[in-house]
Simulated assay, not measured.
Amino acid sequence: MMLYLALFTFLFWFAVWLDAKIGMKKIAKLELVKEDESLYSRGPLLSIIVAAKDEEKHIEASLQSQFQQTYSNIEWIVVNDRSTDRTGTIIDQLAKNEPRMKSIHIKELENGWLGKNHALYKGYLQSKGEYILFTDADILFQKDTVIKAMTYFQNKKLDHLTLAPNLKGSSFWTNAFVSFFLFGFGYFKRPWKSNDPKSKSAIGIGAFNLLSRKAYEGIGTHRNIKMRPDDDLMLGKQIKQAKKRQHMALALEHLQVEWYPNLRSALIGLEKNTFAGLFYSYFMVLFAISGLFLSQLFPFIALFVTTGITQLIFLLSILMLFLAYNVTANKMAKGANIYLTVFPITVLLFIYSIARATILTLHRGGIIWRGTFYSIKQLKK
Rank of each mutant, 00 (worst) to 15 (best):
F373G: 02
L323T: 08
T341W: 12
M227S: 10
V16P: 01
F343I: 04
Q126G: 00
N175E: 14
K381M: 12
A355W: 11
I147S: 08
K29S: 07
D92L: 08
K102L: 12
I132L: 11
R86P: 03
S103R: 09
K214G: 02
V79N: 04
K156G: 04
L167P: 01
E35T: 08
A333V: 13
R364N: 15
T89V: 11
F183L: 03
V16W: 00
V327R: 05
L163W: 10
F322A: 12
L182S: 03
V347P: 01
R356C: 01
R86K: 15
L161I: 08
I313P: 01
F314R: 09
L140I: 13
A6E: 07
P299C: 07
K331Q: 14
Y121T: 00
T87S: 10
N175K: 04
L267M: 13
N330G: 06
F153Q: 00
F8E: 10
N175M: 01
F287C: 07
I203M: 13
K200F: 11
D19N: 15
T135S: 13
A242V: 07
S212K: 01
G23R: 11
L323W: 14
L45H: 14
G129M: 11
H222G: 03
I49L: 06
F177K: 08
G277D: 07
K29E: 07
L278C: 06
N224R: 13
I203D: 14
T145D: 02
F185S: 08
D81K: 10
V342W: 05
L270N: 14
A302G: 02
R228Q: 15
R100N: 12
L109C: 03
L294C: 05
L210F: 12
K107C: 03
G184V: 10
E37W: 00
P99Q: 09
S41K: 09
V146R: 03
F180D: 02
F8K: 12
F153K: 00
P299A: 05
V327P: 07
Q378P: 00
Q142E: 15
F208L: 02
R245I: 06
P299F: 04
K200G: 09
L270H: 13
T306H: 04
W13E: 00
I354Q: 04
I205N: 02
L63G: 02
A266Y: 14
G204H: 11
M320C: 09
L360Q: 08
I309Y: 00
I239T: 10
G23P: 07
L182F: 06
R223K: 15
L362E: 10
L349V: 13
A202M: 02
P229S: 14
G129K: 12
I27L: 14
F183K: 05
G204L: 07
L348S: 01
I225M: 08
L125S: 06
I301N: 04
E271R: 14
K331W: 10
D81W: 05
E271D: 11
G269C: 09
D231M: 04
G335E: 11
W113I: 11
L32T: 10
L11N: 12
P191R: 06
A137S: 15
A333I: 13
L323K: 15
I90W: 05
L94A: 09
L182M: 13
T84G: 11
Y260V: 03
Q256E: 13
Y282F: 13
L163Q: 07
D159T: 05
L30G: 11
G291Y: 13
I345H: 03
M1H: 12
N97V: 15
D196C: 03
T151S: 08
T87R: 01
W13L: 00
Q142V: 01
V16F: 02
